[in-house]
Design a protein around this nucleic acid. Structure first.
Lengths: 195, 195
DNA sequence: TTGCAGATGTGATGTAGATCACGTGATGGC
DNA sequence: GCCATCACGTGATCTACATCACATCTGCAA
């Protein structure tokens, strides 16, 4: 993908939420850095500082946490036009507690914390955009929490597949299980009849 | 509590995040409506439209969901200086799927969706404040989700009590259980030795 | 006073999902 | 083209928590 195509994707995404002049958008875009990653590559590593958030252009990322028993929990998948980072670390300027890596080859646009805050200060519409985006994330997170408390694995699996059918082909089942907070064995048994 | 005291609480809260002139804050405050509620009173009812979000001055609220089997799940407690509403309904202008009511007598400041958006448009620092606040909520929600997947009930109970010890005295155990996503019986048995 | 509703504890039993163990087939690096 | 690794399925067993049932205690309203 060339830079022009990347710019177009971001522009389309942002335009759905707020309006910017050509010059404003050019200025904003100049703060983003285009990056390419290979499948399996790590973008954010637990224990290291976090400087950027990432806008996905192509491919699929995951943000995940590994507990003491080395069990993995997936906080979020990130498909094209999604944003991801370790937001806790990013805003509090702590070291990452979460990892981000690539499920497939991926292209992203990277925006530093300082540049985001600068752009938010300089351009009111950018501040609006990020408020909107964070709000969407918050509502989605609350919904997921509720579904976690309320529904069993099977229901949550079907809910996820209905919402993001593209995950079915791209993401291996053990990662789906780690997102649903269930063992891969249980996920595998969901549709086997009782004996 | 008189209006002056209420105003001071909101002002202190907002000042921790952004700076406003006296006139700006007076203007902002004029959009809030002071309200008093009795213990047990309902503020937001499932199935009805939602127009406002609520800043808690005193007392304790809960936002909760009731599923088909009449089981209650608590999304959030709201103590003084916390904000609460059905944000999904509020932003998407749908009817509420969540209820909010009073665990104790409570005083709140109420801000309508329209007024919040108007203030955000008019005063850049207000937009900044709400972006900050939503971001904090998002990060907290992600943390809770992670704790849900990673930790057992006992750990989550101790985590909650460590974070908000005041809940221990104010909130009955069946509501704590509904927040932790566990039955009240299991919560009650947490510290009984194995027989 | 009486009596009712809410808050809490606790025994007995049921169950969803975890864990451990093992197998097969696919795949990708060298 | 070989071999290690990963993805996925499946049986046996274990366990945390749910559910149902019942008891106690408390505060409060008629």
């Amino acid at each position: 993908m060339n830079i022009t195509a990347a710019k177009e994707i971001l522009k389309t995404h942002v335009s759905k939420v707020t309006t910017l002049t050509e010059e404003q958008f050019d200025y904003i875009f100049s703060h983003f850095q285009y990056q390419q990653y290979k499948k399996g590559q790590t973008i954010i590593t637990e224990g290291t500082p976090v400087n950027c958030e990432y806008f996905v252009l192509s491919g699929c990322l995951k943000s995940f946490f590994i507990n003491d028993e080395l069990k993995m929990f997936i906080l979020q998948f990130a498909m094209p036009t999604w944003w991801t980072s370790d937001y806790n670390a990013l805003y509090s300027r702590n070291k990452a507690t979460v990892n981000v890596d690539c499920i497939t080859d991926a292209e992203v646009l990277c925006l530093s914390n300082e540049d985001r805050e600068k752009l938010c200060r300089e351009i009111h519409h950018v501040e609006y955009f990020f408020r909107w985006r964070t709000n969407k994330g918050y509502v989605a997170s609350q919904k997921r929490l509720l579904s976690f408390m309320n529904n069993n694995v099977r229901y949550r699996y079907e809910e996820l597949m209905a919402l993001y059918p593209e995950l079915y082909n791209i993401v291996p089942k053990n990662l789906i299980a780690a997102y649903l907070g269930v063992s891969r064995e249980t996920l595998s048994r969901l549709y086997t009849p009782e004996k």
